[in-house]
Write a protein that binds this DNA or RNA. Sequence first.
DNA 1: GCAAAAGTGTTGTGTCTACACCCATGT
DNA 2: ACATGGGTGTAGACACAACACTTTTGC
Lengths: 233, 233
Amino acid sequence: MLQVRDGLLQVLLWRRAHDPFAGSWALPGGYLEPGETLEQSIRRHLAQKVDVRELAHLEQLETRSEPDRTPHEWQLATAYLGLVPSDADPRIPDDTAWHPVDALPPLAFDHESIVLAGRERLRAKLSYTNVGYALAPREFTISQLRDIYAAALGHDVSATNLQRVLLRRGVLESTGQLRASGPSGGRPGALFRFRKQTLEVTDQFAVLRPPSGAGPSSLLRSRAFPAKGGRHR
Amino acid sequence: MLQVRDGLLQVLLWRRAHDPFAGSWALPGGYLEPGETLEQSIRRHLAQKVDVRELAHLEQLETRSEPDRTPHEWQLATAYLGLVPSDADPRIPDDTAWHPVDALPPLAFDHESIVLAGRERLRAKLSYTNVGYALAPREFTISQLRDIYAAALGHDVSATNLQRVLLRRGVLESTGQLRASGPSGGRPGALFRFRKQTLEVTDQFAVLRPPSGAGPSSLLRSRAFPAKGGRHR
DNA sequence: GCAAAAGTGTTGTGTCTACACCCATGT
DNA sequence: ACATGGGTGTAGACACAACACTTTTGC
């Protein structure tokens, strides 16, 4: 479960009470109950840590099966990536805490590599989808959004270009509103929101895309009128 | 397991001998043995159908857990995408056959949706990675490669542009060789090969990429010399 | 010479980055 | 007025699609 807090990308970790790895930090989760899907199970386990309504996006990452990933007993684990908007401040139990992904404590099992894989997935999807909605508050100024993107991506982001890219793609829309300017002055920022609150691919990055006029399956298409004489056009 | 055969994208299916779904077609696979990773297990089951050396690429797709995806007993399944070069013609057992993905017979369980998900993954990766190596023969002409891409993508592909895109990205390299021209004449084609035989992302499709000069983590960077007077340049 | 197949040259388009400049507010 | 932060205008780089044209072969 990732969130941008205090300008940093952070992950919710849980301090293990029991062996193995008693006392060290781990990702929240647990066993699958009979009759439950993996997604239901993750949501159930997370609900014990955080109000589920805060969870703005959840997607499957990968199933790990290495026999030595857990000691004593062999366990398969399916990892999920969950995202929480940066303005949510869920009450969390005493045995959990947010940790910056850039400065993780030693983690139990293979959880460190799972966290890093989740971060990579998030970074990729920030580029070509609208997942931003799951990290941002409902309404925000472009600079707020820029800080969220910068924290998640790990590098500076230009507010100018971020605005233009997301507007051109139709990912953001303007609420007519303005945010009052801060105590140190400055022009008030316009408030924006994500047009959709569900995942959408916004950049097909599909080089090798279908030829302009053609339908999806042109394999059966006959090359009508082999152009004996005239060029049309 | 997907392959381009006879100009069509096809999937290797296995006719089930036993209930449930006795007699209908299904994806090859089977139970995980103790101490085995999922990947080892898939390779083991596939080896019973096809020589494993033919498998040029294998990647995990998704784990399905819906309780009603199998009758009577609840089973989780982790789906993998395997690719075989189009010049391989593996000996396959009598109870298996290749089927065009465009014209699947009714499949057991949720296997149809898995096949379609695999095709989507393949199509996406053809655009931004070098996965083509896993579908193409070791050496090929551009038109052969175009036919393979066209079959996998489901639409016409321009040989001209395919060549330029893949060369520009450094994905293909020319062997000095020429292929003899066919019986109907025509200029002989140059032979190319994929520079790498392992998966590589070749198009970052990373809009929102780091600013040109900056290292990966510029969050800790102090904005040295706040430019009191002079502009530098 | 002519058809077939392969390959190159060239133009136009869209999307992005970078950077200069203008705008609105607080003190 | 001027500092602070927000927003627009514009130019250049790049990757790609489309298509005209040239090259090399078989017949």
